[in-house]
């Protein structure tokens, strides 16, 4: 029982950064902007979060540092794609390339240093509930925040006037503009929100998941977050499902790699043979599972064109120059 609980806990830790980054990108994309720079903003958030936590000794200030770094870094993307109408795909790639390089340079002095870990907040009474108590109510602050963020974004997008405005900008920027909505301003805000979320997701990696700075530690998570937005067909609650599925895949392959086959002799023989078979799979194939799963999921989701088309913001990735 303890073992299962520990595994489930790590799934939560692996899923949280994916969910936060994907939620941020969802808001950005709902406003009609495709920011492929999630990976770059995430790694900038990770290095800044780690650095601020090191300098101040506080993991919470570190998280704030990650948020600020992500938002600032996304401004670069916003300026190029919104003010100068540069190609969004290319600029997003540029953001990722620059982020990976710059974070390596900034973080060089931090390699190998022990980080400041964000400790879990145990909520009294609730955490003593059977089964779910430990999982849901003795987690780090960023996990609680991620759940609040999910609910808040869903409410904002579909229950408020501002959310409706944001979606209208993403669906038809020309009509929105002719109704007097400041398309560019709203998109700036949406991009910065996405950047802040990616930054926080990165900070979570450097403060909770690994508590260390490792160059390139985002390891493709930003791209997986982008795929999750497609998987979720731009619906917040489906991102929850997707993020936890991917968290489970990541953790499952890690645990399979770590497991000692001799400790499983208590299993019935057929299960033991099965375990032996799985253990015979080379570790590199297990490590590639999250990436292969992303491709499979993208293919399956995209097959149903009508479903994707209904929810895809119609102006996604298209530049807009207001005529004056």
């Amino acid at each position: 029982m303890l073992m299962t609980e520990a595994i489930l806990l790590t799934i939560f830790t692996a899923a949280t950064p994916l969910m936060i980054a994907a939620l941020g990108e969802l808001v950005t994309e709902r406003s009609g902007v495709l920011n492929l720079g999630v990976e770059g903003m995430m790694i900038m958030g990770a290095v800044s979060g780690f650095a601020v936590a090191q300098l101040t000794g506080s993991a919470y200030l570190g998280a704030l540092g990650g948020i600020a770094a992500g938002a600032l870094f996304s401004l670069l993307f916003a300026f190029l794609t919104l003010t100068l109408v540069a190609n969004q795909v290319a600029t997003g790639l540029a953001l990722t390339i620059l982020g990976l390089g710059l974070s390596g340079l900034i973080g060089e002095g931090f390699v190998g240093q022990p980080g400041v870990k964000m400790f879990p907040i145990v909520i009294p009474f609730l955490s003593e509930l059977p089964l779910v108590g430990k999982l849901l109510f003795s987690q780090d602050a960023i996990f609680y925040f991620s759940i609040a963020l999910l609910i808040a974004i869903n409410w904002f997008l579909f229950k408020t006037r501002a959310g409706l405005t944001l979606r209208s900008v993403g669906d038809n920027h020309k009509s929105a503009h002719s109704l007097g909505i400041d398309v560019i301003k709203i998109r700036y805000l949406a991009v910065m929100f996405g950047g802040a979320c990616s930054g926080l997701a990165g900070a979570h990696l450097a403060l909770v998941y690994v508590p260390q700075w490792v160059e390139g530690m985002s390891a493709g998570r930003g791209w997986i977050a982008l795929a999750l937005v497609v998987f979720a067909s731009w619906r917040p609650f489906r991102i929850l499902v997707g993020a936890y599925l991917f968290g489970a895949v990541t953790i499952a392959q890690l645990h399979i790699q770590a497991i000692d086959i001799n400790s499983l002799t208590f299993l019935p023989s057929w299960l033991f043979y099965l375990a032996e078979l799985i253990k015979a799979i080379p570790s590199q194939f297990l490590s590639s599972l999250p990436y292969i799963a992303t491709i499979v999921v993208l293919v399956i989701i995209s097959r149903n064109r009508r479903l994707t088309l209904i929810n895809t913001p119609a102006s996604l990735g298209k530049g807009f120059v207001p005529d004056r």
Partner: peptide, 16 residues
């Protein structure tokens, strides 16, 4: 890594 940063900065300026 300064070289990597240069590459990223260069792409930004090209697109701009």
């Amino acid at each position: 890594k300064v070289g990597r940063v240069f590459q990223g900065v260069l792409l930004f300026f090209v697109l701009a």
